[in-house]
Design a binder for these strands. Sequence first.
RNA 1: GGCCAUAUCGUCUAGGGGUUCAGGACGCCGCCCUCUCACGGCGGUAACGGGGGUUCGAAUCCCCCUAUGGCUACCA
Length: 493
Amino acid sequence: MPEKVRVRFAPSPTGSLHIGGARTALFNLLYARHNNGKLILRIEDTDTERSTEESTLQILRSLKWLGLDWDEGPEKGGDFGPYFQSQRLDLYKKEVDGLLAEEKAYYCYCTPEELSQRREEALKAGKPPKYDGCCRKLTPEQRKKFEAEGRKHTIRLKMPEEGQTVVDDLIRGRVVFDNSVLDDLIIVKSNGIPTYNFACVIDDNAMKITHIIRAEEHLSNTPKQVQAYLALGYDIPQFAHVPMILAPDRSKLSKRHGATSVEEFRDQGYMAESIINYLTLLGWSPEGTEEIFDMEKAIKEFTLDRVNKTAAVYDVKKLTWINGHYMREMDLGYVTEQTIPFMIKKGIITEQESKDKFDYIKKIVEVSRDRAKTLDELAHTVAFFFKDVTEYEEKGVRKHFSKENAVKLLTLGADALEKLDHFTHDKTEETFRNITADLGLKAAEIIHPTRLAITGRTIGPGLFDIIVLLGKEKTVERMRKAVKWIGARHQSY
RNA sequence: GGCCAUAUCGUCUAGGGGUUCAGGACGCCGCCCUCUCACGGCGGUAACGGGGGUUCGAAUCCCCCUAUGGCUACCA
């Protein structure tokens, strides 16, 4: 009878959720859903110096925005709460007391200064900088003396001095560590709060976690945790250490690498669906060659044995391509809704206008979305529909406005459009093509200057899509304005 | 320094002894489509870190080296 799968994502609230954390959360969710299990979210806020509530909120926000929904945890509750380690101190204390009583753990009075000094000395002497175990066999008298001196203590877990600790990792296979390299782990800091490596063991056990799926950086600490499981008499869960995500220069992700947090990507105009799809493919691969994966499909196909062992460098270019793909393939109304906040932020439209003119904006997005790879970029390219053209792209002026016939064609075009009753794509196009055909010119001769006149740019959607959406009045007005602009420019020479 | 892990195109990856002078995706380049730019279609560029084994045969298994990453905190 297989036990019910329970996995967890356990971030520490010391910063924003970066893409590495998001990927770990995603793999946990994928594994849980694929196996009809539960995803537990637990906040590891045992570092009272660095943990902030703001960070917790930001992580929850990012997770929700990405669609990584947990079953138990903050805001959700559950039978194994509380889900903040700072609220579980009693539980830890109980377990520590047991360990102390059984003499599996002991008080250590060494100060951080002494420790680091000894570490440096050992390093200098070419020896491993391991804790020397000096407090391991303190007599009651010595202990009393230290206490009388007012020394603070930590609590350490005794590690076996001989033998080996084996970690059977679902991704990496059997990893063996010599116990002789294991430090007596500090399980309670001098401020009375347990360390991560200990608290997570107690919580994973108490929360009945069956599979610990986390980043590879935790692999080296796993034997110590295994010893904690053993000392506490717990069953050892399954471990799966997923490869790390590295910055383009192959170093660990950090702020200096530009955008690494989920919120930064969001603000740059990447959609949640794209980030999820991209992250799914980082370290995991499907059996087939299809790379477009929504969450549902990924859940169906996800297994741990197709997770690879190699650290991955993230590639914004590919993320951008995926984002462009989603922007043009997803439901038009949805993409429009996603784009609107960026338009508002840029001052292209107001919140009210976004509601009043939603259908209009939707049509604009429809003809423009093929060309943009981010929502931010799309919002930018669409601005001329709402804002007057105040300047013309210089390259275009040289190419299209300085031509002999530009003024003539723009004038003819404006005149003809003005008289048009049925202002449709086909009618406007027919009108333009007739004008150039009559003069023995190619349609491009009028199309390019017109685009520049009404958008200020040389690139953009099909001209007649623009003309129809912009409307007769504005189109004609902008064309005439351009004619004047060209005239004024020529006079100044 | 010690311990652990990893090593296929620039990047993400498939491939786990012969069916692969290594397949896909992004990027890049070219062509087609075309009113521009995109999109789309087609084609191209580009990789098994090095050295030893094992084997009839190795990108695939073993060893060594090298490189990279992680851990070695009273951070997680």
